[in-house]
């Protein structure tokens, strides 16, 4: 359960989030849609305490997100996995080290063969060949890097999965694969998923619910069916994009 209560955030003069209130139920897959630069990514960072809101509160799994309180923050982060918009892989270590990093850091497992098994499992989950394990991030293409970054997040087996623009910069085939993966995780493993995106097609394919952000406020909230008949002007623009 993620609950966001009346959260506001500005950068300088620009108010990117204005009194946002939303909830994500356990096991639900919510898409947050909107044009570029409306503060969608900021919302995700607020949820894991990488950024602090000016007003309002966010609770994740019943715990209040507070960047000052490092103990609860560590507990919250233990439950969450965030896939960044850009891969954010550690340049100085290999792909294997990258994926196993979280397993070691969170002490999920210390047994080397167990760690290796987990890494291989997640790698096949994102559809990558085991040959990449020994390579360094800079040797890989952008779309492969992004898949590695998703595998790295999945490796810590989070209860809450947050995606920041997962399909940006990926080819159509990889996009479809990723959509299936997100759907599978939320349906089979009951992972609570929040996807920030401007990819309306993925949202229709995968999302249980959609939230449309415009000028710092929620202009639409509801299912895909309801979205098709929405009269909000931005929703109409997105509909035109789709059909």
């Amino acid at each position: 359960m993620i609950s966001v209560k009346q959260v506001s955030k500005s950068f300088g003069e620009r108010r990117v989030l204005n009194q946002i209130t939303m909830q994500v139920a356990p096991g639900e897959c919510v898409f947050v849609l909107g044009k570029s630069g409306v503060g969608k990514s900021v919302l995700l960072k607020l949820m894991v305490g990488l950024n602090s809101p000016e007003s309002g509160e966010i609770h994740v799994a019943g715990l209040k997100v507070d960047a000052e309180n490092s103990q609860t923050l560590a507990q919250i982060r233990k439950k969450c996995g965030l896939v960044f918009q850009f891969p954010a892989l550690l340049d100085s270590v290999s792909v294997f080290e990258n994926i196993s990093f979280g397993i070691r850091a969170r002490e999920i497992s210390v047994n080397p063969s167990e760690i290796e098994a987990k890494v291989r499992e997640k790698l096949s989950l994102v559809g990558l060949n085991e040959k990449v394990l020994g390579k360094f991030p800079t040797e890989l293409s952008f779309s492969t890097q992004k898949r590695v970054s998703i595998a790295r997040t999945l490796a810590v087996e989070p209860d809450y999965l947050l995606f920041d623009e997962p399909t940006t910069g990926m080819d159509p085939i990889a996009t479809t694969g990723l959509n299936h993966l997100i759907k599978k995780l939320s349906q089979e493993l009951k992972v609570t998923t929040v996807v920030v995106s401007h990819d309306i097609k993925s949202a229709f394919a995968v999302g249980d619910r959609m939230i449309l952000l415009d000028q710092g406020q929620i202009v639409f909230e509801g299912s895909a069916e309801k979205f098709k008949t929405s009269t909000a002007s931005l929703a109409k623009q997105f509909q035109e994009e789709m059909f």
Binding site: L50, R77, C80, G81, L89, G102, A105, R106, R152
Partner: peptide, 17 residues
């Protein structure tokens, strides 16, 4: 600086280190 602006440091934070 490169690690910070490419969010590598944030990734480390989130992965629990």
């Amino acid at each position: 600086g490169t690690m910070e602006v490419t969010e590598q440091l944030n990734a480390i934070r989130l992965l629990g280190a």
